[in-house]
Each structure stands twice: as structure tokens, then as C-alpha cells.
Amino acid sequence: MNTSAPIENLISKEKIAIAFENVSISYGGNEAIKNLYLNFPKGKVTALIGPSGCGKSTVLRAINRMNDLIPDCKIKGRIFYEGSDLYDPNIDPVEVRRRIGMVFQQPNPFPKSIYENIAFGARINGYSGNMDKLVEKSLKKAAVWDECKDKLNKSGCSLSGGQQQRLCIARTIAIRPDIILMDEPCSALDPISTLKIEETIHELKNNYTIIIVTHNMQQAYRISDYTAFFNAENVDDGEGGKVGYLAEFNETETIFGSPKQKITKDYISGKFG
């Protein structure tokens, strides 16, 4: 247990959903994030903010092993979920992703019917209950039921962008994960759809741990309980490369109200980024 991390005390141990312990992630030879210690609280919404290239999406993808898909992505250090190191060689990434779902920047419904979009994940996860009920429940939780209840057999791709994104959230809920990761889920959407997704997140946070990457600081302020501010610093490799690091992590109120670091304050007030 490394006690040197200042954020260790913020969350008591049994309330930790995911714990990063001295994690460094690199693509090829380039480090994207270094020496990260970070505990994500259970049952809360945590926002990851920071300028481009600070490694926040990399951190997010590391949590459900989606970095595995990127060739020559290397990860050092340990990431704990319920007492297991997610990068232990005995861990099955498929099982990890069944417990830690993800919603992407671009809505990506399957080219199947709305009903099948939800049922697919549930079925491959061995769900044997009433599928109709599950579909309805998941769509309701994602606040998109009213818009698709009459066209469950239509293709998921026929919905609007915002509805597609909520369908993707519903699809993730249907596999009953512990944690939902969201990678800038609203960046491709209009303000009204964004508002609906935010309402959905509000609904969801009673039952799930949510970790969301966002470029929109007002959004981070509106929806999150905790905020992690990442920054990037130059490395002396002669190529102008940058490496991301965690600058500050605290309750959202504190980060936006009285940040401890000047750099955080500068970023939040829009002086750079």
C-alpha cells in the first residue's frame, strides 16, 4: 500500500471501486500517463477533465482493458477492482468488460433492431429472465423508452444521435455492470440531447459507479461528485512529446470552488486548455 499519494485519505477503503497504484501507460515508446495513483469512489460520478493529450481517455480505457486492442500499448503498475489486479495474467478481459461497461464518444448502436441491441449483450452474458421486461427496464433507465417503445423492431441506427447514445447507455445497463465508463458521451451531440444524457446519468448514479471523461467543464460540474484534473507536461525527449499526470483530485465542489493548485484554477477558469 503506497501511502504517499495525497488522495489516499479522501475515500475510505471499502468505498473504492477502482484503485490505480503507480500506473504508467505508454504507446510504443511514448508515455501517455505516468505514476498515477487514483481511487475512484464507489456509487459516485467521477469526472476526468483536462486538456487534450493529458491521458484521461487512456486512463478510462485502462479500466476495462480496452487498451488491449491498441497494439504496443504497455501498462505498468497495478489497477485494482474488488481486490484483483485487472492486469494479472489470469484475468479474462471479457469477464472484466462484463462488469465494467463502456459508452463511447460516437454512438455505436449495433446494426440490429432496438430490441436486439439491448438483448444481445444480456443474452451473451447468460441472462435467462424475461427479455421483454429487461429491454423495457433498460430503456426506461436510460430515459429513451418513450421514444422507442413503438418501434422496438426498427434498426437502432434509425434513431437520432442523442437517442442512439441513450440506446448505447441502455445496452450497457442491460448487462448489469458495476461500473459504467463514459468517454465524452456528449461531444457528438446537440445541447438538448446532452441535457437528456446528463439527466440519465443523474438517474443512474444511484445504482452505478460512473466514470466520465468530458471536455465540457460545466458538464463536469453539473453531473459529477468527484473530479480528477489531469494535465500534460513536456518531456525532454527532444521531440516535444508530452506526458499526462494527475494534477488534482477532489470533490467536485472543491475542485471548482477552491482548487489547491494554481494550474487547476487556471484550467477551470479557461486560461489554457
Binding site: 471479457v94 461497461g101 463511447f104 449495433f110 449483450g121 452474458n125
Partner: peptide
């Protein structure tokens, strides 16, 4: 994106 979507609902 479709492949990632499928992997993230727990598909092998």
C-alpha cells in the same frame, strides 16, 4: 466502433 461496442457489453 462496432467491435468496441460489442466487446464492451462483454462479447468475446
Amino acid at each position: 466502433n462496432l467491435r468496441k461496442g460489442a466487446l464492451c457489453v462483454g462479447a468475446s
